[in-house]
Write a protein that binds this DNA or RNA. Sequence first.
DNA 1: AATTGTTGATACCACTCAGTATCAACTTTC
DNA 2: GAAAGTTGATACTGAGTGGTATCAACAATT
Lengths: 140, 140
Amino acid sequence: MDKPKYTISTAAKLSGISIHTLRMYEREGLIIPYKKSSNQRLYTDRDLERVKCIRHTINEDKINIEGIRRVVSLIPCWAIVKCNENSRKTCEAFNGHTKPCWMINHENNFCTGKDCRECEVYHSFGSCESIKSKLKELLT
Amino acid sequence: MDKPKYTISTAAKLSGISIHTLRMYEREGLIIPYKKSSNQRLYTDRDLERVKCIRHTINEDKINIEGIRRVVSLIPCWAIVKCNENSRKTCEAFNGHTKPCWMINHENNFCTGKDCRECEVYHSFGSCESIKSKLKELLT
DNA sequence: AATTGTTGATACCACTCAGTATCAACTTTC
DNA sequence: GAAAGTTGATACTGAGTGGTATCAACAATT
């Protein structure tokens, strides 16, 4: 499930999304594939789910990429990872509202050194309803 | 501030947004102007702020209308109005994730009979950063 | 009662954006 | 070491979107 095993061309075939589009989603910060030391991308099964969800959101729900980025930027990462107050003071993810935490450079931070690919926050977006479920979970 | 006083043409002049566009935003569920018994719209100063915010989000931030609708649908209305558990069971706003509560028909509900124009949830969107601030307020 | 403004509906336009194509340099595979 | 695949960059395309124009029926203002 979480093992990086598909090259980009296999991922494209399996997901039905072109290589170019997969790279575009990545450039836009919607997905972070695993990268080998040679910079070659490898996709997990979960990644495939995620890109299919992204495509669905764009093509069926008609939300544009900037809109998706703004939606995922509302994930309350601070409440999920439970970072300390000091970290929050300078954290772009906590203080901004245009980029999700995994698009941000975390230095001198609660999240420094952590791999966003393995973070619950990053996984809160993957099936499409899940962000609201996460909010409900935290707010009831 | 919250007094409905501008007709649509005045509102258009003051906000720099055309009459047609103002009506479009309304059709899309992004704003609810006050309506006289004759169905004529009247805008408050706060409404003007809101439409300017909407336009900014579309033109500057490049988020499309569907994207905005999805963002505002993430406002945790249930936690703000503190509706009872029974209401939640059948509430489209609580259970769905594509429409904000003020676009929904509330019958036999905690919100039945309430005027969304006066609700804190509706006002959580108006300046553009405010949704995240609201989440922070609730989750810290 | 006449002028001006509003409503909602339909049809239309211009432009933006998601996705594609092409490219040379580089890796991987066999 | 040759073939197949990957990378990132740039340029392009076409569908879809935000916004406009026009319309007759109705309301408000004078």
